[in-house]
Design a protein around this nucleic acid. Sequence first.
DNA 1: GTGAAAGCGCTAACAT
DNA 2: ATGTTAGCGCTTTCAC
Lengths: 342, 342
Amino acid sequence: MTKQHDGAQRRVTIRDVAQRAGVSISTVSHAMSGRRSISASTRTRIQEAAEALGYNANPLARSLRTGRSGVIGLILRPRDAVHGSLGGTETFTRLAGAMATAALEKRLGLIHVPDILDPAAPRVPMDGCIVAHPYGDDEVLAELLRSEVPVVTVDEDPDRPEFPWGVLSDHGHAATTVLDRLYDQGARRVLLLTGTEDNAWNRRAGEAYRAWAARHGLPPRHESLYEGEGVQGAERLAVRVLDGPQRPDAVVAAASRFASGVARTAHALGLRIPEDVMLASLTDSEYTRGHLPPITAVDLVLEDLAVAAVDLLMRRLNGEAPPQQPPRFQPVVQWRASTARR
Amino acid sequence: MTKQHDGAQRRVTIRDVAQRAGVSISTVSHAMSGRRSISASTRTRIQEAAEALGYNANPLARSLRTGRSGVIGLILRPRDAVHGSLGGTETFTRLAGAMATAALEKRLGLIHVPDILDPAAPRVPMDGCIVAHPYGDDEVLAELLRSEVPVVTVDEDPDRPEFPWGVLSDHGHAATTVLDRLYDQGARRVLLLTGTEDNAWNRRAGEAYRAWAARHGLPPRHESLYEGEGVQGAERLAVRVLDGPQRPDAVVAAASRFASGVARTAHALGLRIPEDVMLASLTDSEYTRGHLPPITAVDLVLEDLAVAAVDLLMRRLNGEAPPQQPPRFQPVVQWRASTARR
DNA sequence: GTGAAAGCGCTAACAT
DNA sequence: ATGTTAGCGCTTTCAC
C-alpha cells in the first residue's frame, strides 16, 4: 500500500499503450474496437501492452468523440420521492430499481440526475432521460425539452397531452374500477383522499371520482393531503373524517401510506373494515398487502412501465418516429378483504 | 411536430454563444463560470446569447477537460440484487434508493454501473465507485482496483480485510445479540439458515453462530440456500427441517424472505411462533415487520451506510488519507413477538 | 478585460 | 495493415 505516494498518478491512456506496443494510437484504437483488421502479431503486442499497463479507455473521451455515453438519466419528480419519509417511498424505490434493472439489461447505465433546476448542481452526461410522474406544466421537463435532451416520460405531463414520448398508465380506469366495485358492495358515501402533487396520478383519480359520483348521483367528497405527510398525516386526517358526522362508508386513498393511516384510525375508533368502512388504495405496497385485513390496492405494474420506458427511450435515441399511440398500461387491481363485504 | 426534419440538429456549443455575443469562447467560458472579471456589458450580451440559443455546456467535454464528472457509480454485488425475484430485493432497492438520495444531496449523480466484467458493456464515466456487499475475493472489486478507479465498499470484501476504504456493519455482533436472546428465552436447538452468497453478511453470521454454539456447548446446525430462492425456497427447506426429527426450537434466517418462508411452513405445520419455534431474521423488511406475529429482525441501517459511503468516497476523491478505523455501524435489532416467549 | 491556442483522450476519415 | 491528423466541446494558461 505504499504505492500511494501523493504524486499525481496519471491514468494510463491510449498513448501509453501505443508507445509500449510500438504502434500508433489509431492502431491501438482499432485493435481494441476490432473495427479494422490488424495483423495477429500487432494485435497480441497491443493486448499485452494494454494488459500490462492496466489500460482502460476513458469513457469520457470516447463519448465526447462518438456522441454517445451509454447512459440514460432518471428523474423522479414527486417531491416525496427523494426527501419523503422513509418507507413512504416504496413506489419510487421500486420504480428506480426496476429502471436500473431494465437499463442494465439493455447494457445502459442508469443515472439519477441531480436537480436540473439547481444552477449549482453539475450537469451529468446522458444520452437521454426518463422523467417519471411529471407535474402539470412540469418545469424540469420543460427545461429538458429546451435543451433538447431526448426525453421520455412515465405518465404524461397532464398539461402537455400532445407530447408523444410517454409511457402511460390508465389511472382513471383503475380508479373507476375500484369505485364501481365499492358501489356494487353498497358504498354510497365514498371519500376520495388524494395527494397534493399535481401529477397525472392524482389528477386522473380526481377526475374519475367526480365522473363516477356524477354518474351515480352521489355528492363527491374529496380530501387531499401532501404525500410526504405519510401514514401519520392520514391518521390525523382520518380522525376528523371518520369520527365526524356523515361518516363515509368507504375510503379510496391514493397513496398506500394514506390507506394505512386511515385503517389505523378506523381500528382505533372501533370501526371494522370492511363492515363499517371499506378501504382501497390506488397504489400497492407492503402497507396494503401486509395489512390486516389486507387492503385492496392498485398495482401500477412499475416493472412493465420501466421496461417500456427504457425501450421507448432507446427507440427515440435511434431516431425512430414517435409511436402513433403511446404505450399504455393497465394497472392491476388487487382485490383484497378490505373491499369484500360479501 | 414537423420540426423534426431528419437533418442532424447540432447541439448549441460554446462557439455559437461566442459568435452570437461577438466575443471569444474563452470569454464565454469565463463568463459562465465567473472565474475572472468580465465587463458588465459583455456579461449581459453573453447571457442573452446563451439564453436565446438555449445553451448548456456539454458535461462530457467539461469533464474530459477538468477530470471530474460529478458522478459516482454504484455496483450492487449480490446476484439476486438485480435479477432476484421481485420483492426479494427490498434491501437492495432500499440501499440503492438511499445511495441516490445521499449522492443527490451532495450534488452528485449516482450511476448504476453496467456489468464491468462484461466486455460488451459500456464503460461509464464516474469519478469513483461504491461496491456494495462484495464477495470474498471479489472480481469486480479487483478489476476496479486494477483500473485505479477510487472505490469504497459497503461491507468489506471478507478476503481483503486490509482494504481501508470500507464502511462496515457489525453483522457478527448483531447475530450474536439475537442468538443470545434466543438462548435466554430457552432455545437450545437453534438452526441458522443463511444464503449462499459468499459475502461478509453470510460469513459473519456463520462465524458468530459457530462461536455462539461453541460457547454454549451446543451442536451447530447450519443450512444454506441461494438467496434467489426466496420465500418459496425457504418454505420447502423448512418442511424438511421443521417436520423432521430433532426439530429446532428456534430459527435464525439471514434473509427476511427466508424468515417469511419458515414462518409460513411453521404455520402450515401447526407450529406456533414463538411458543413452538422462535424465529428471527438478520435483515429487516416488510416480510418481517408485517408478519403475524411480527418477526424479530436486524435493521441494517442502510440509510446510514449509504450516507457514510458517499461521504467516505468524497473524502477519497479529495485526496484524503484513509481513516484509521473504517466507519463501523451497529445494526439495530428490532425485537418483535416472534422471539418473545415471556 | 479580452483573445489565441493548447490540450483533455479518444475515434474515424484520409492517407500510404 | 498501419500511420497521420482533425476534431468532439470545453477549461485554462499565456499573452496582450
